[in-house]
Amino acid sequence: MLDRRKLLLGGAALALSGCKVFDSATANDSTLRRLFASHEGLTQATQRALIGDRLAPEFTEADIRQGQRPNGSTDPTSAAYRQMAETAFRDYRLTVTGLVEAPQSLSLADLTALPSRTQITRHDCVEGWSCIAKWQGTALGTVLTLAQPKLTARYAVFHCFDAIERNLSGEVFYYESIDLIDAYHPQTILAYAMNGAPLPVANGAPLRLRVERSWVTRWRSMFIRSS
């Protein structure tokens, strides 16, 4: 019985010595990490098969109980961005380049002149929190239709104003990509208004990409490159 107790205490001590035991196995470059990440293809394929072109749940005005909590960088510092923000983004242009037949350069006025979509949706941060808000904007599909992606295009890459780090060649800007299935989804919009007012800087002015069936990691768009 005494030995058993010792064994048990030994096991408990191992557990309490911290999960450092698993740190090397889970480091970004380890083989085990690659094994763990191997589920991602299966996860994506399963999700695609299950959701098809279904819509994300939408909510009612009564469900908007608070302001939209900002996330990511809430106040970009680059000079070009600051200058545009001071003039209410009059000089802002959304450019669409890359594998497209008709590259676009659109002002906010151009975008608001296009048909708009309004949706009350739940914003889910990958950290775990949720917040419901009303978003109005131009469907990304409408903009892509103008730009006419080439047949070889499969993804849309969004280059943003938010500097995520600084290295020897200057500021490194945040970017994000989605495939063209998500890009043409009817709820995928370039939002310029939130809760009935122009999009604030803290929430991604002048344009924020909403991909409603995905996590919120998207940010204010500077230009879109199809690839």
Partner: peptide, 10 residues
């Protein structure tokens, strides 16, 4: 908790 799965099974 998956926004994608929410679209599949609201």
């Amino acid at each position: 908790m998956s926004p994608g799965f929410n679209a599949a099974a609201p």
